[in-house]
């Protein structure tokens, strides 16, 4: 979708080496307004690094990063661990991102489904609550582009589906562009418009239905047991006809998004 709109953010031919290891190679990626782009790839594929480069936290060795001038970015980092010795309530945490009126803070917390947490200590939050609070902090900046690094990390499967639905609703309401990192394609499929499969370079990209059948994607994530690149557990595998089948020996059932 939105092939005609000018992108909010664009990266071309980006190359980066960390500790003698090439992490990103000739990476092109762009995000337009109103579009949800999901970055998938195995651990160590450079997803978070790519996000850091886009955010200006790291300089690429080669290539260029372009952001629309004056672009307001909301960023949700991969993890937040608050030291036990630092007392911090959700309210104070949200205020660290900038001043917002009390009613606005309440409104945003309601929207992300964390309405009752304003005075809760950040350390007392569950994984899902923490992710929602982080999302609220990003939303309080009234973003045109949301960058979400593994937004469902530490959340159970039911909660993951809820969070992805919430992200979809936010896009519909704000009409902002969203770039998110995920390592699970099936759950994001219903939400995302475009998938970019990254393994240091862009292996393939396109609508989720196309990518999940792409040979490059299958080589990376697929059922071939000879390929041990990707080690995180899968409770199902993909058939070429896009059916998702549970693996033998696991009874967790179908977690395909509704």
């Amino acid at each position: 979708m939105d092939e005609h709109t000018k992108p909010l953010a664009e990266m071309r031919g980006v190359q980066l080496t960390l500790g003698g290891r090439r992490v990103l190679e000739q990476v092109d990626i762009s995000v337009c307004g109103g579009e949800i782009v999901t970055l998938v790839g195995p651990n160590g594929a450079g997803k978070s690094t790519l996000v850091r480069v886009l955010l200006g936290l790291m300089e690429p060795e080669q290539g260029s990063v372009w952001l629309r001038p004056g672009l307001r970015i909301g960023y949700m980092p991969q993890r937040l661990s608050v030291d036990p010795v630092l007392p911090l309530t959700v309210r104070r945490f949200l205020a660290l991102g900038g001043k917002s009126s009390g009613s606005r803070v309440n409104e945003v917390l309601q929207e992300v489904g964390a309405g009752g947490l304003l005075h809760a200590p950040v350390r007392s939050l569950s994984g899902g609550e923490l992710q929602r609070v982080l999302l609220a902090r990003a939303l309080l900046r009234d973003p045109q582009l949301l960058i979400l690094d593994e937004p469902v990390q530490g959340v159970d499967v039911a909660g993951q589906t809820d969070l992805y639905r919430l992200i979809g609703r936010i896009r519909d309401r704000l009409h902002c562009g969203i770039l998110m990192v995920s390592h699970d394609l099936h759950l994001v499929m219903a939400t995302t418009d475009r998938v970019v499969c990254l393994n240091r370079h862009v292996c393939c990209s396109g609508p989720p239905e196309d990518v999940s059948g792409d040979p490059a994607y299958l080589a990376l994530f697929g059922s071939s047991p000879g390929l041990a690149v990707y080690t995180h557990h899968h409770d199902h595998h993909h058939h070429l006809d896009e059916r998702i089948a549970p693996l033998e020996g696991r009874g967790e059932g179908d977690d395909r998004p509704g």
């Binding site: 955010l55 960023y75 980092p77 660290l96 991102g97």
Partner: peptide
């Protein structure tokens, strides 16, 4: 304080 809680988030903001 923002830097103490999360460096990269503070930088991006």
């Amino acid at each position: 304080l923002a830097d103490t809680v999360h460096q990269e988030l503070a930088q991006v903001e």
